[in-house]
Amino acid sequence: MSVKFVLGRGGSGKSTYILDEIKNRVKDNEITPVILLVPEQYTFEMEKRMSKLFLGEEKDKF
């Protein structure tokens, strides 16, 4: 298991990069767990973005 830190300024695409990585792992049927840590005040926003990530055909697969 490895740890990957994604660092950068606000608006540089960190969240988009992370969500794309998670989506790719799900598509590839990756079984290793993914732990996404966000500050408590951003939990609801990240949950909304994660739910939007798997709309349409992909949502029906899981």
Score class of each variant (00 low, 15 high):
residue 58 E to M: 05
residue 27 K to T: 05
residue 48 K to R: 11
residue 53 L to A: 00
residue 60 D to S: 12
residue 3 V to R: 12
residue 55 L to F: 06
residue 10 G to C: 11
residue 44 F to R: 11
residue 22 I to G: 03
residue 6 V to R: 04
residue 17 Y to T: 15
residue 51 S to N: 14
residue 21 E to G: 06
residue 19 L to Y: 02
residue 44 F to S: 13
residue 38 V to L: 03
residue 32 T to N: 12
residue 34 V to H: 06
residue 32 T to L: 15
residue 22 I to N: 01
residue 49 R to N: 08
residue 19 L to P: 00
residue 29 N to P: 02
residue 38 V to R: 12
residue 27 K to E: 03
residue 7 L to N: 08
residue 49 R to C: 02
residue 36 L to W: 05
residue 47 E to V: 02
residue 49 R to V: 08
residue 31 I to W: 12
residue 21 E to W: 06
residue 23 K to R: 14
residue 50 M to I: 05
residue 34 V to T: 14
residue 55 L to G: 01
residue 47 E to C: 07
residue 47 E to W: 08
residue 58 E to S: 01
residue 55 L to P: 00
residue 12 S to W: 02
residue 13 G to P: 10
residue 54 F to K: 02
residue 43 T to P: 01
residue 44 F to W: 04
residue 7 L to V: 13
residue 48 K to D: 11
residue 31 I to M: 12
residue 38 V to T: 04
residue 40 E to D: 06
residue 45 E to R: 06
residue 5 F to C: 10
residue 38 V to N: 08
residue 15 S to G: 13
residue 34 V to N: 03
residue 18 I to E: 03
residue 10 G to D: 13
residue 11 G to K: 03
residue 10 G to Q: 15
residue 14 K to A: 13
residue 20 D to K: 14
residue 39 P to E: 03
residue 19 L to A: 02
residue 47 E to Y: 10
residue 36 L to I: 04
residue 59 K to N: 05
residue 4 K to M: 10
residue 11 G to S: 02
residue 22 I to L: 04
residue 15 S to D: 07
residue 20 D to E: 15
residue 32 T to K: 15
residue 37 L to E: 05
residue 5 F to S: 01
residue 19 L to K: 00
residue 59 K to L: 15
residue 41 Q to N: 13
residue 35 I to F: 15
residue 25 R to M: 05
residue 12 S to V: 14
residue 42 Y to S: 14
residue 7 L to T: 11
residue 49 R to T: 03
residue 14 K to Q: 11
residue 14 K to T: 15
residue 8 G to E: 00
residue 29 N to W: 08
residue 48 K to T: 14
residue 9 R to N: 05
residue 48 K to A: 13
residue 41 Q to S: 12
residue 26 V to Q: 09
residue 13 G to K: 07
residue 58 E to N: 02
residue 4 K to N: 08
residue 52 K to Y: 11
residue 60 D to C: 06
residue 15 S to H: 10
residue 35 I to S: 01
residue 25 R to L: 03
residue 23 K to Q: 12
residue 13 G to E: 10
residue 15 S to C: 12
residue 38 V to F: 07
residue 31 I to T: 14
residue 30 E to R: 14
residue 10 G to E: 15
residue 42 Y to V: 08
residue 28 D to H: 15
residue 59 K to D: 02
residue 9 R to M: 09
